[in-house]
Design a protein around this nucleic acid. Structure first.
Length: 587
RNA sequence: CGGGGCGUAGCGUAGAGGCUAGCGCGCCUGCUUUGGGAGCAGGAGACCGGGAGUUCGAAUCUCCCCGCCCCGACCA
């Protein structure tokens, strides 16, 4: 039994000045966590109870799925991460340290290498597979900017599992087992979640999915179809390619003088102001223009080459998507010295005429999927102060290919059913990912197959943010008065309050607390004498135990009050029937 | 890394050259109070982020440093 009189807890009446998001504010105010350093938090008794409940639910579901728990150190040697290239690739995000002999170590940001090597050391036959092992472990990432309290820390707890299979079919099965287990896990955590595609088609449609907990403070933006069940991270949205248009009636392309129009906005304004250029049907909009943006892309070999991207003028390039698509290449904006080296590119007036394999410049030219054959554009004419009108894709220019990097806007078409997409934000609480053979290859994890041939094992990796889940649940489940925990993760089933100056309510509450515990309920008992009822009520709402029981003024008539934290609904019940009644309330 | 804001008691804050650094919450003592963050009285608690400087005098002005928060860049 938790007694408020002795519980190591101090609730705060005011919001902490450094907390912005609700989960952070409330977890601090309710005395669940305290900040130690940026992105580093301590768990206090109530917080640690909730944390452990969540951890145990996750562990339980993993075990139920038949996965086996192991535990690696957080302190890891450099060598394995050197072998996979991540010692350098991880960059500043990796916490590195040296021992007294100047040996390099790191604090594990994730453990693919260690799992791969562990299995390599033990297994060597296809008969041993499939295998799934997992751990629940503290991870370290020196985030450039930790934020939002527990949601994005530099030290956090993650459940990470890894599957090992002989072939793609096995990997697919291991992946599905995780997907199912995750659905059960997050359901049990009382969380609302959506499963979204996390990678574009290039890696295979089901290769990677994220479990997002929708909330405004989430860091991930995702789309959801307003009609069908399609959902995807914005980085993974597939733009449906429109059918080619008939352009037989479009007049020939014509170059026009358009002084001082280096931006799309200026071009649109100019076009609408010119009587000879104005459209008969409607004014020009940015969507009628074709914007061409050039990047320098550094390949894995370190060589930089230019890449031009064409997209409708009403859209921006989403740099996250661009980087994802170009991996392992790294893009950077085209700058003045680059323009100097490529004199055919006129800043602000770049057009397809100077781009593409067909052109002398040979600059690779990829366009947004919306730019299909027959679409008609206003775009740069490759000379300062000039644009070309009625330039038709497929007739007047032919790009080298398609690239999916435009920002996604609400109302864009669903790739599955064509309806409009809605944008929303979510917290990434889980990620399942078919890794393939990358790590097995790099670290030499091979087994003999049934023909006696050595084959490289294929892997999957599957994460759940355990500490993050605490904050995600808090984020989704609170009101202006405090936290509202789903029962299974709550620090207690019943928050029992005794009020009044007399001994009677305290004696009755004490007795009831014992009986409830006896009956198997977890009880947080506010046995503080001399604390006013208002304080107790407010604390109970802040702390967020799902059922609040008050032994107070109606005790003389033999009644106690039962309040549902979420709905606020109160009912008086006879104290004699309290135990069975509360057992029922607590299901 | 770019932009913005901020460091004063455990928490939230006032003080913008001049008395012993003020207030609220919390904490301690006593009395009163006990169904929605009680009242009165008394008390403890501060190297005003650090260093250097200007000045008769610095929390307050100047310079340097350190740290924190927010937005962005970045990022399982």
């Amino acid at each position: 039994m938790l007694r408020m009189s002795t519980l190591f807890l101090r609730t705060l009446r005011e919001d902490p000045a450094d907390a912005e998001v609700p989960s952070h504010r409330l977890l601090v105010r309710a005395g669940y966590v305290r900040r130690i350093a940026p992105g580093v938090f301590s768990w206090l008794p109530l917080g640690y109870l909730v944390y452990r409940n969540i951890e145990n639910i996750i562990r339980d579901e993993m075990d139920r799925a038949g996965f086996q728990e192991v535990h690696f150190p957080s302190l890891l040697p450099r060598e394995p991460y050197e072998l996979t290239g991540r010692w350098t690739e991880y960059g500043d995000t990796l916490f590195r340290l040296q021992d007294r002999r100047k040996g390099d170590y790191l604090l594990g940001p994730t453990h693919e290498e260690m799992f791969t090597l562990l299995v390599k050391g033990e297994y060597s036959s296809y008969k041993d597979l499939p295998l799934v092992i997992y751990q629940i472990q503290t991870k370290f990432r020196d985030e450039a900017r930790p934020r939002a309290g527990i949601l994005r820390g530099r030290e956090f707890v993650m459940k990470d599992s890894y599957s090992f299979d002989i072939d793609d079919a096995g990997l697919e099965q291991s992946y599905q087992r995780h997907r199912d287990a995750y659905i059960d896990t997050f359901t049990r955590l009382g969380m609302q979640f959506v499963i979204v595609s996390a990678m574009s088609g290039a890696m295979g449609g089901s290769a990677s999915e994220e479990f997002l907990a929708p909330t405004e403070v989430g860091e991930d933006t995702f789309v959801r179809c307003t009609t069908c069940d399609y959902a995807a991270n914005v980085e993974a949205v597939v733009t449906p390619k429109p059918a080619p248009l008939d352009y037989s009636l479009v007049s020939a392309a014509h170059v026009e003088k358009t002084p001082d129009t280096p931006t799309i906005a200026a071009l649109v304004e100019h076009s609408n102001e010119r009587a000879d250029l104005a459209r008969s049907d409607r004014p020009w909009t940015a969507a009628d223009t074709l914007k061409n943006i050039v990047f320098m892309v550094k390949g894995p070999d370190g060589v930089e080459s230019p890449l031009a991207v064409g997209l409708p003028g009403d859209r921006e390039v989403d740099t996250k998507r661009l980087e994802a698509v170009l991996q392992p290449g790294v893009p950077r904006p085209f700058e003045e010295p680059d323009f100097a080296k490529h004199p055919t590119l006129m800043k602000g007036y770049i057009g397809p005429g100077a781009l593409g394999a067909a052109n002398s410049s040979g600059i690779r030219y990829l366009v947004d999927p919306r730019i299909v054959t027959g679409t008609r554009w206003v775009t740069g004419a490759d000379a300062t102060g000039t644009h070309v009108y009625d330039l038709v894709a497929g007739r007047d220019f032919t790009p080298d290919g398609v690239i999916e990097v435009a920002e996604v806007l609400a109302g864009d078409s669903c790739p599955k059913c064509g309806s409009g997409l809605a944008l929303a934000r979510g917290i990434e609480v889980g990620h399942i990912f078919q890794l393939g053979r990358k790590y097995a290859q790099a670290l030499g994890l091979k087994v003999l197959d049934e023909n006696g041939q050595l084959v490289t094992v294929t892997m999957g990796s599957y994460g759940i943010g355990v500490s993050r889940a605490v904050a995600a649940v808090a984020e989704q489940s609170h009101d202006e008065n405090g936290l509202i925990w789903p029962r299974e993760v709550a620090p207690a089933d019943v928050h029992l309050i005794a009020t009044g100056r007399e001994d009677a309510p305290f004696a009755a509450a004490e007795l009831l607390a014992g009986e409830l515990e006896e009956a198997g309920l977890r009880v947080l008992y506010d046995d503080r004498r001399g604390v006013s009822p208002g304080v107790k009520f407010n604390d109970s709402e802040l702390i967020g135990v799902p059922t609040i029981v008050v032994v107070g003024k109606r005790l003389v008539e033999g009644f106690i009050e039962v309040k549902d934290r979420r709905t606020g609904e109160r009912t008086d019940i006879a104290i004699a029937e309290a135990v069975p009644a509360l057992l029922e309330v607590c299901e």
